[in-house]
């Protein structure tokens, strides 16, 4: 009896565990190539959590031994799309097999990280990976990322003063315009004798017609070039070798 009861309890527990809500989102640090220790992974995981809180973006780091016949761009795109990450975010992929890296942006991160920004990030980060200091490289990446995500906001006193002067100027112009109510009459309409107006000729002659056509321009987003992944979602990004 006791044994049966114990087995039932264990089965119930197992069942309960299975039914427990599992987070649909995978962890943000996916170190399949084992470039870092689990402590380092956890450290980076915490950091990425901060990013989520502060910028509502998923920053994902993915290292793999190979990309299985996919291009780094496709691999990064698909991994990001299929693992429950938010619509806004980015993924940093390191493929140890071909020694290629790729950053793929999604949602608001596409515009926030322009092609220029990604170029600058490349210049600063990739040397770390070329030398094999992977943890340092990712730390540096997460360190400089906020600089590019943040818009140059706040405290443009000069701009405020200029707009202020503009508004003051307009209000003053309105005040000045009421200082002269002189208005010459436009026409002699008031003095037209009722019923004296007659339209004698009203002729519209058709001459010829001309048809022209213009090709529609293709749409491009400013600052960031985009591509579509196999599932159809748009991504920005950049890749290279290390």
């Amino acid at each position: 009896m006791k044994r049966k009861f114990a087995i039932c309890l264990i089965c119930l527990l197992l069942a309960a565990l299975m039914v427990l809500p599992v987070s649909a989102k995978s962890s943000r640090i996916q170190d399949f190539a084992n470039l870092m220790t689990s402590e380092e992974d956890q450290y980076l995981e915490q950091w990425c959590n901060q990013f989520d809180i502060q910028y509502t973006m998923d920053v994902v780091i993915l290292t793999v031994p190979n990309t299985m016949d996919f291009s780094p761009q496709d691999f990064a795109d698909n991994f990001y799309e299929n693992n429950g990450y938010a619509d806004d975010g980015l993924i940093f992929l390191l493929d140890m097999g071909s020694r290629r890296w790729h950053i793929s942006t999604s949602g608001t991160a596409i515009e926030a990280l322009s092609d220029r920004d990604l170029e600058k990030i490349e210049q600063k980060i990739i040397p770390y990976f070329s030398e094999g200091t992977y943890f340092d490289g990712f730390c540096k990446f997460l360190d400089i990322l906020p600089n590019y995500l943040e818009e140059d906001s706040g405290g443009n006193l000069l701009l405020a003063a200029l707009i202020g002067a503009g508004i003051a100027g307009i209000v003053l112009l309105i005040m000045r315009s009421s200082m002269n109510t002189k208005r010459p009459q436009r026409s002699a309409d008031t003095y037209e004798i009722d019923g004296s107006y007659h339209l004698n000729t009203h002729q519209d002659l058709f001459l010829y017609s001309r048809l022209s056509k213009q090709a529609k321009p293709k749409e491009t987003s400013s600052g960031s070039t985009t591509h579509r992944s196999s599932s159809g979602r748009s991504h920005g990004g950049r890749g290279g070798s290390f």
Binding site: A188, Y191, E192, I193, S196, Y197, H198, L199, N200, T201, H202, Q203, D204, L205, F206, L207, Y208, S209, R210, L211, S212, K213, Q214, A215, K216
Partner: peptide, 20 residues
């Protein structure tokens, strides 16, 4: 693919009179 523009050209003749 294209934006089309058709322009019809006309000659209009008018004649009127009024008194003031």
């Amino acid at each position: 693919d294209y934006i089309y523009t058709k322009t019809d050209h006309y000659l209009l003749r008018r004649q009127a009179r009024s008194a003031y």
